[in-house]
Nucleic acid binder design. Structure first.
Lengths: 344, 344
DNA sequence: TGTATACATGTAATCGATTACATTTATCAT
DNA sequence: ATGATAAATGTAATCGATTACATGTATACA
């Protein structure tokens, strides 16, 4: 690639040892005598040697990289997760490839190809909506032990995953609204087949019936986590004859879309309608009004997913008995201004 | 990596040709007879052969990957750019590594290391704030012809770059406010050393003097593109005795931070203060009020940066005479609700 | 027919690091 | 002193694809 080419042989010559010894100094320093080790490292420094990753990868049959599949990079929700991951991968000099599952340009390529082309050793998938076909391919190629799901997961597959306590989040949201006096609580869901949609919807329904709140079918409005779906939900709500007084949204983005459109139609948040989101992305604090929401510890999600994956793809993976039990990360209610006591 | 190991030799045997022929079928199909080519591809399909990238990379001294340096992945501004890039890289099966320059976890690693470790062939840098030290290292290693800047760039370096017409954007913003009757126009800048800060500030100053608008030093408020800096700027503005009637912000995020805090302090946008942003991220349309802003064609920026880089790192790079002239992408004023006619 | 030329394909060296196995040296018990 | 054992290091095969060079074959032209 570059013009320089200090090879391991050059270092060996410089240090007066064999290439094997140099290699060992790098990967198993404890096998060497203090003295030789020193000599090798001195030679490495004086020659400016850097190991050639391609050669190493070829020989060790590893890629030194992992793939992270993100449903939508445009959603700022994901950045902190990626930061958490790079923290865990940090020292292991594993590179992180990021692919957007919604990206038209790359959609021709199957994700299993990254493995088959020996480009990555493992994958963290933030998209629970992988097609059964894709998953089947992972299975067929014996790759399913190199996948970790984070945030989302695949319903009733037993792949390892890290996730927030979604049901608990939904419960906190509904309870908060209940405590503020609200009884007519609507919910804007995520996309229909999504596992998060399901977990949050069930959590909210459970809490709603525990509190014996009235249930109306059209207070469950289908969305898809996007700003635009929040806008559409707002239009539905505006046109209802029996309007809810509060709305729990499956994501902060939905809440923004909702509030924006309510406001454009003269409905004030929180005076006329209270709104609670889910995620607590950075912007939530700076929206008008500041969004009351459920905080996911995105950094922890990323960090844990990364270390879980590293355990899986290590040469001698530790296989704890509960390998398939999802790692669940706590959520937290963040009270701001978008939900207020019911006016009467 | 996986257990399977169909090697090029296996394909060759299956097709009754030599490994060289198989290799040629893949990289220079036109060298082969129709018949042999067919035979090879049939064998490839029947064996399920996939080229081993590590081996190819080792032999060709290429990495088949590029690095994209992003100043802050949490800023949704960058996602569309990445999408644009992956569109350009799409067919060339180049992998894209993304690194966040603000990422603590990776900050120990110098970016030049990615090259020296032969992990990437080129780099697109969205951060003009690379230290002189880093840049020097690229020079020292003869790597400066493998870098393309996008959005930001390094002042007075002659590295190729793709950028928006920032001065024009600033001009459009000021002119729009002027047309609405505003004369007292403030500006919240980006970080002090940033090239965008400079370009936009100068653009706004030029337009302001062209229109013979009053100039007050404390109407130029230092920010850093972040939500938080918008909040701080709002506090300064609120406490001014001679308040501007309109504010042009160096980024949408700043505008959000600003509006959020103005609003929390009882100042209405746009009735009391008009606000114009810069970027047009997706959320701008859904803020309350919807943000009037300068749209950057992020997709085009990404697409062009990627193809520019590909030209640079091709085996026989085309060296157009104007290699160092920045590629400039048009901007556009998007009128929404955050800027309104001056009330009097 | 013979020779020059272009074209298609094969042979084998090569990219640079890792590691199984071999060898040497040091340590220790008998 | 001798052999056994462990520790340190070296030798050389290997990972899998690419490609310079060699070889073989077909075509054209004299």
């Amino acid at each position: 690639m570059a013009q320089k080419s200090v090879r391991i042989r050059d270092v060996a010559k410089e240090a007066g040892v064999s290439t094997a010894t140099v290699s060992r100094a790098l990967s198993n320093p404890e096998l060497l005598t203090e003295a030789t080790r020193e000599a090798v490292f001195t030679a490495i420094r004086s020659t400016g040697y850097r190991v050639n990753k391609a050669a190493r990868n070829l020989r060790t049959r590893q890629a030194g990289a992992v793939l992270v599949l993100v449903p939508n990079l445009g959603n700022p929700f994901f950045s902190q997760i990626l930061a958490g991951m790079s923290e865990s991968f940090g020292d292991s000099d594993t590179s992180v490839l990021i692919a957007d599952t919604k990206d038209q340009a790359t959609s021709g390529k199957l994700f299993v190809d990254y493995f088959l082309d020996s480009q990555v050793d493992g994958m963290i998938c933030l998209d629970g909506g992988l097609s059964g076909h894709e998953l089947q391919q992972f299975n067929d190629n014996g790759l399913s032990d190199r996948i970790v799901f984070a945030c989302e997961w695949v319903h009733d597959s037993c792949l390892p995953s890290v996730r927030s306590d979604n049901a608990r989040g939904a419960q906190l949201a509904v309870q908060h609204l209940f405590d503020l006096g609200h009884r007519k609580i609507a919910h804007i869901t995520g996309p229909q087949e999504n596992v998060l949609t399901h977990a949050r919807r069930e959590g909210m329904l459970a809490e709603r019936s525990r509190l014996e709140l009235p249930i109306k079918d059209d207070w469950i409005i289908r969305g898809d986590f996007s700003l635009e779906s929040g806008r559409q939900a707002a239009e539905k709500i505006i046109s209802m004859e029996d309007r809810p007084t509060a709305v729990f949204c499956a994501s902060d983005q939905v809440a923004f879309g909702l509030m924006s459109t309510l406001s454009a139609n003269g409905l004030r948040v929180p005076e006329d309608i209270s709104v609670v989101g889910f995620d607590d992305i950075e912007l939530s604090e700076y929206y008008v009004p500041a969004l009351t929401t459920i905080r996911q510890d995105r950094h922890a999600l990323g960090r844990k997913a990364a270390s879980l994956l590293m355990e899986c793809i290590e040469p001698e993976p530790v296989v704890p008995t509960d390998r398939f039990a999802p790692v669940v990360v706590d959520v937290e209610l963040v009270v701001r201004q978008s939900a207020a006591p019911l006016a009467n």
